[in-house]
């Protein structure tokens, strides 16, 4: 049957076409495509590796960071405590000082008041003495008619002085 007889011409042409196709496609298509595929696969694998590594690094950094943070936190609380202590001490001191100062001032005030009081009493005493002297003078200057009148007069004087 004709269908089953391979023709020599067609075999030769097929060989020529196939050989040139293999050559051209290898040079212009397969090499760049396969190289591109391999390169990309490599790049992806590398990227994945890098990502994994970065993840580990990140984890390490995170723990480091955490430790640092903890330290900082401790330090902060320490500082806060110190500050509080200092504040308490300062306030206590200030209070003590204020208290003693206040006591001192009160003491001084009291003394002043006493002084003033004494001065006032002396003044009153002086004024009373003067008044007595004045009254006595007036009494002495007046004629003393009767005893009643004297008494009366003395009373008015006293009354007057009182009114004053």
């Amino acid at each position: 049957m004709e269908l089953l007889k391979p023709e020599l011409g067609l075999i030769i042409w097929t060989t020529i076409i196939l050989l040139s196709l293999i050559f051209i496609l290898t040079k212009f298509a397969w090499k760049p495509i396969l190289k591109g595929l391999n390169d990309r696969e490599k790049t992806i694998a590398e990227a994945l590796n890098t990502a994994e590594k970065t993840k580990l690094e990140m984890a390490a950094m995170k723990s480091q960071h955490e430790a640092l943070l903890n330290e900082a936190r401790q330090e902060r609380s320490l500082i806060l405590k110190e500050a509080k202590d200092m504040k308490d001490a300062i306030i206590g001191e200030a209070r003590d000082k204020a208290k003693s100062e206040g006591a001192k001032m009160i003491e001084e005030a009291k003394r002043e008041i006493d002084n003033q009081k004494m001065a006032a009493i002396i003044e009153v005493k002086n004024a009373a003495g003067n008044l007595v002297l004045e009254v006595s003078e007036k009494i002495l200057r007046r004629e003393l008619n009767s005893k009643d009148e004297q008494v009366k007069y003395i009373n008015t004087l006293i009354e007057q002085s009182k009114l004053n």
Binding site: F28, A29, P32, I33, K35, G36
Partner: peptide, 9 residues
């Protein structure tokens, strides 16, 4: 395939 290969460059 030539045009497909260009994409890689």
């Amino acid at each position: 395939f030539r045009s497909a290969a260009k994409g890689y460059g």
